[in-house]
Simulated assay, not measured.
Amino acid sequence: MQVTPLNDQQLITNYLSGDERAFEELLSRHKQRIYTSIYLFVKDQSLAEDIFQEVFIKIIDTLRKGKYNHEGKFLQWALRISYNMCVDYFRRNKRRPKVSPTETFDIFDVLQSSERNAEQGIIRSQTHDKVRALVDMLPPEQREVVILRHYADMSFKEIAKLTRVSINTALGRMRYALINIRKLVEEREIVLQ
């Protein structure tokens, strides 16, 4: 007999009925993607952890007040909250995220991989490092779209709504991001495998 895991909406309903474990399940199901999306914006592990905690406090608050109405779209809703909190942080502090090579968190450490051998793993890790450095060189609007699309797995429609631009603008930013990455690869003669 197989047990079918509860979907996000069922977990939310159970949580609102007093089942704290339901929220723990919801948190463990989505925490890595939400934390990763925050970290990619702020580039600071302790700041990302602080914002992550604020995001889940806001989520709990909204759920308890009965204001959650994004049935079946919990992850996108949570990512939107995390994005807005990152934007609010940068508006308050009037600065953009900076790359810090001393950070211990690495997005590619959390991605599952089916590497066959150590050499392939090393090559993949080096390629990811190069791509991450290229993304960090992009203008902020282009970097934002790349992160939301490829790391937060959002659609262009969701990105447009979240960043308050048209879908065409979001698509254009992605197009220019890819063009800029290609130029950087050619100019610096970077080999991506």
Rank of each mutant, 00 (worst) to 15 (best):
L6W: 10
L6V: 07
D8K: 13
I12M: 03
I12E: 03
I12R: 09
I12Y: 02
I12G: 01
T13S: 13
T13I: 08
N14E: 12
Y15P: 04
Y15R: 15
S17G: 09
G18Q: 07
E20A: 15
R21C: 05
A22P: 14
A22M: 14
F23W: 14
F23S: 14
E24C: 08
E25F: 02
E25S: 14
L26G: 10
L26A: 14
L27D: 03
S28N: 12
H30F: 10
Q32S: 12
R33N: 12
R33E: 12
Y35V: 00
Y35H: 02
T36H: 01
T36L: 00
I38M: 07
Y39L: 04
F41P: 01
K43W: 01
K43F: 02
S46M: 06
S46E: 12
A48G: 13
A48L: 08
A48D: 02
A48W: 03
A48V: 11
E49W: 03
I51V: 12
F52W: 12
Q53H: 07
Q53R: 04
E54C: 03
E54K: 07
V55R: 11
V55P: 02
V55C: 08
I57N: 13
I57Y: 10
K58T: 09
K58V: 08
I59F: 05
I59G: 04
I60G: 00
D61F: 05
T62A: 03
R64E: 13
R64H: 07
K65P: 10
G66T: 10
K67R: 15
K67T: 03
Y68H: 10
N69R: 13
H70N: 15
G72N: 09
F74N: 11
L75V: 14
W77F: 12
W77Q: 01
W77N: 02
L79M: 08
L79S: 08
R80C: 01
R80H: 03
R80T: 10
I81C: 00
Y83L: 00
N84W: 02
N84P: 01
M85W: 00
M85D: 01
C86V: 00
V87E: 09
V87M: 08
F90I: 04
R91I: 06
R91P: 03
N93R: 08
K94G: 09
K94P: 05
R95L: 10
R95I: 06
R96P: 05
P97D: 12
P97K: 07
V99A: 07
S100D: 07
P101Q: 05
P101S: 06
P101N: 06
T104A: 11
F105W: 07
F105D: 06
I107N: 01
F108S: 05
L111D: 04
L111E: 12
Q112P: 08
Q112D: 12
S114K: 05
S114P: 01
S114L: 04
E115P: 05
R116F: 05
N117F: 14
A118H: 13
G121C: 02
I122A: 09
I122D: 12
I122Y: 13
I123E: 10
R124Q: 11
Q126S: 08
T127K: 11
H128N: 11
H128A: 12
D129V: 04
D129L: 06
K130D: 13
V131P: 00
R132S: 06
L134S: 02
D136H: 09
